[in-house]
Every structure is written in structure tokens, then in C-alpha cells.
């Protein structure tokens, strides 16, 4: 870890004002501090935002919920309203990290956590995301946990969050305040694909502070699930995860949301795959067909090709569970 300055922001405006180049906001610190210890991130200054009053969970005028950026992951997952109206979100959060981490981690920090790519973490190795132009260690290297969709020849990292996969499926909106004022970013547009700028994870600009995440009214509470597949039963990042939400009309799918985690640089959604479900009977064959649409461009590497088939199976399983499930699925 390198020396840095530290200051605590008294208000959101103050935080934005202090966010000069080379500084970083610190919320729960569970990702940022690890990366600083590993010498991956070297901010010259930290602006502590953890005490800003952005930790509430409130109703929105549109009938949804506003999750404060500084609400803790655990408090969000166990919020009564989240559990009953957005069970897939609660389940997704609780599938992530450990109880201790979820108690520290904030919603805003979770959105902006960095990839767990081994090379990103090891400064003795090449990584375009950490050091643009140094090459991608994972391509041709150890890539069991890497992307099968939307990757580039510069970077095949995945976004590691569980929470984000559910937020993508729910079409949440990210509220930001920055040097240019306030704006709202549809969730699908927050994270970007690596392309030839893998060092940039999101569309946020320097000094942008996430203030809240808005959940729309529709929570797919009756027919939804979050399925996470990993190398051990807990405390491991997703190899593949699926957030699935259906609206059912008898046995027919009226509307569908499907997002995948662990497969791409961002939570992966595909309107064509969802369209392949809508108006169709809820059968495993239909689910499989939709999965194949979603995975049509999937490409594996030496150690992660299994994810393609695993993702297909996971989608079928998640959709089957969501279709069967009636009522909130409490984790």
C-alpha cells in the first residue's frame, strides 16, 4: 500500500467537489482497500463517503424502491420490502461474499467493484485493465473464471457482482451526482464491455458519485429466482449466475427478464432471448431454446468453455424454478 491522503466528506456536494483526479471515494472499503494493499489501485487521496446520509431505503413516487448508495448490502437484502417485492434481489445479495463482507459492503461499492481476474490482482503480470497496453494475461493463461460473452481481444474479464445481475434483470436505474450535476443511468448502460478500453469499467466520469439505485415497481416477485453456481457452497464468486423473472398467464410466459452473471464484463441481458420466451409455454424446451439464443455468440477459452453448457443448464433450471415458484422466494 502506498501513502495517501484521507478526508471525510460532509455532504454529497462536498464529496463531488473533492474528487480530484487521483482520488477515490471509499465506502465500505471491502474492494478498494484490498486493491490498494495489492498495489493495483494507487489513489493519492481517499474521500470517505461512508457517513453520508445516503443509506436509506425509501419508496419512490412510481411505486418502486430507492436503495441508498450507502445502504449496506446486508441491510438491503434483509429489508422487508426488498424481500417481499424483489425477492430475486435479496437472494442475489445473500448469495454473494460472506456475512461479514455484506455487513460492510455498500450498494454503490458493489456496483463499482472491480473484476477478480487473477492477473488484474497480480502486479507482476500483464493486464490491460490494470496497465493499459501491457497485454491480457488471461488470454492464453489461467482463465477458468473468465468471460464467454462480450469479451474482446484486449480483455476477457467478468464483472463479479451478484447484486448487479439482479439489478440488470429488474431494470434498475442508477442515480448519480457529479461535477456536471445529477443524472440517471439505466442499469444496462452503467457497465461497459471491454472493447479496446478495458481499463474503463463503467460510463461514470471522474467525480461521479452514485447516490441511489431506483427499483421500478415491477419486481417479478411471484415468479423469480436467483441461481448462483460456484466452486463451493458459499463465499465464492459465480462461475455462472442467473437472475430470472417471469410474468405468467397460466402456463404461458407473458413477460420475461433474464440476466446472467459471471459470463461477461457486465451483467448480460439479451432482448432476443427474452423475446424467445414471451408468449410461449413455460417448458424446459422453450427455456433451452431461449438459452441458446442468449449464448449464440458465446466463446470459451482453455479453462472456461464449460461455462457455455453450464450457463445453458443454469438458465433452464432458473427459468423452471421461476415458473414453478408462486409467491416470494425468501432466501
Amino acid at each position: 500500500m502506498r501513502s495517501f491522503t484521507y478526508s471525510r466528506a460532509g455532504s454529497a456536494a462536498e464529496a463531488v467537489g473533492r474528487a480530484a483526479a487521483g482520488t477515490a471515494f471509499v465506502a465500505g472499503g471491502t474492494n478498494l482497500l484490498d486493491l490498494m494493499k495489492a498495489d493495483v489501485l494507487r489513489p493519492e487521496g481517499l474521500v470517505d463517503i461512508s457517513r453520508l446520509p445516503l443509506d436509506r431505503i425509501e419508496e419512490t413516487a412510481e411505486g418502486g424502491l430507492r436503495l441508498g448508495a450507502l445502504a449496506r448490502n446486508a441491510d438491503t437484502a434483509y429489508d422487508e420490502r426488498v424481500q417481499t417485492r424483489y425477492p430475486m434481489l435479496s437472494k442475489a445479495i445473500l448469495a454473494g461474499a460472506s456475512a461479514q463482507l455484506r455487513n460492510m459492503a455498500t450498494n454503490g461499492g458493489n456496483l463499482l467493484q472491480r473484476t477478480r481476474c487473477y492477473y488484474f490482482y497480480d502486479t507482476a503480470t500483464p493486464c490491460n485493465k490494470r496497465q493499459p497496453g501491457s497485454g491480457c494475461g488471461a488470454i492464453g493463461g489461467v482463465n477458468r473464471i473468465h468471460a464467454i460473452l462480450g469479451a474482446s481481444d484486449q480483455c476477457i474479464a467478468v464483472h463479479p457482482s451478484d447484486l448487479c445481475v439482479a439489478l440488470a434483470a429488474l431494470e434498475a436505474v442508477v442515480r448519480v451526482t457529479g461535477p456536471d450535476g445529477e443524472r440517471s443511468i439505466p442499469f444496462a448502460e452503467l457497465h461497459r464491455l471491454p472493447g479496446d478500453r478495458p481499463e474503463i469499467d463503467t460510463v461514470l466520469r471522474p467525480g461521479d458519485l452514485v447516490t441511489a439505485i431506483d427499483l421500478p415497481a415491477r419486481g417479478f416477485a411471484e415468479h423469480s429466482t436467483y441461481l448462483k453456481i460456484r466452486d463451493r457452497a458459499s463465499y465464492a464468486f459465480a462461475l455462472v449466475s442467473v437472475a430470472a423473472g417471469l410474468e405468467m398467464d397460466g402456463d404461458t410466459v407473458r413477460d420475461a427478464r433474464l440476466a446472467l452473471g459471471g459470463v461477461a464484463h457486465k451483467p448480460w441481458r439479451d432482448p432476443e432471448a427474452e423475446a424467445a420466451l414471451i408468449g410461449k409455454p413455460a417448458t424446459p424446451d422453450r427455456f433451452r431454446a431461449a438459452a441458446r439464443v442468449l449464448l449464440r455468440d458465446a466463446k470459451g477459452h482453455e479453462h472456461n468453455s464449460f461455462k457455455i453448457e453450464l450457463a445453458e443448464r443454469a438458465i433452464v433450471r432458473a427459468l423452471t424454478e421461476a415458473a414453478e415458484r408462486k409467491g416470494a422466494s425468501r432466501p
Binding site: 477478480r116 497480480d122 503480470t125 473464471i145 463451493r232 457452497a233 458459499s234 464468486f237
Partner: peptide, 17 residues
């Protein structure tokens, strides 16, 4: 070089296992 040189990526059983 061993690449998964931390407890997050070098997996040992957790209680749930």
C-alpha cells in the same frame, strides 16, 4: 507463477461445504 494466490480464489472448504 501460481495465479490464484489468495483465499478468495484458492478455495478451501467453508462451513457450508
Amino acid at each position: 507463477r501460481v495465479m490464484n494466490h489468495d483465499y478468495a480464489e484458492y478455495h478451501v472448504p467453508v462451513n457450508a461445504d
